[in-house]
Simulated assay, not measured.
Amino acid sequence: MSDPIRQPDSGNATISQEDAVRLVELLAQTSTYEGDHLAKKRFLLDGLCRLVDATQWSWAINVFDEDCKPHHAGALQGGFSLEQAECLATCVNHPATHRVFAPTYQRIFTQPEPLTIRMEDHAGAAEWEKSEASALAAAAGIGTFVSSICAVEDHGSSTVTLFRPYGEPPFTDRQRDMLHIIIRGVPWLHTAGWPEDARVHQIAELPTSHMVLLTLLVKGYSRQDIADVRLLSINTVNTYTQRIFKMFGVRSQPELMRCFLEGQPEPANDGTDSS
Rank of each mutant, 00 (worst) to 15 (best):
H155A: 14
A192M: 11
A125I: 06
P114K: 02
R199F: 06
L136M: 11
H210C: 02
S222M: 02
I183N: 10
K219L: 12
P207G: 02
P112K: 12
A126Y: 07
S134K: 05
G143R: 09
G193N: 11
I142N: 11
T191C: 06
T161M: 10
L162W: 05
E113W: 05
R174W: 00
T144M: 09
A138H: 14
G156E: 08
S131G: 09
A139C: 05
A135R: 07
L217W: 03
E205M: 13
E127L: 07
I108Q: 01
D154S: 14
L115P: 09
V200T: 11
K219G: 07
C150V: 02
R164A: 15
T172M: 06
F163H: 15
R199W: 04
R164W: 09
V160D: 10
H122I: 05
E120V: 08
E205D: 15
W128G: 07
L206M: 14
A125N: 12
G156A: 10
A125V: 08
E127Q: 11
E129N: 11
K130M: 14
P195A: 01
W194E: 06
E196F: 03
E132D: 13
H180I: 01
A133Y: 01
Q224D: 04
P165W: 02
K130D: 15
A139R: 08
A125S: 15
T215I: 03
V200Q: 12
W194T: 05
A126H: 12
H210Q: 07
H180P: 06
R164L: 14
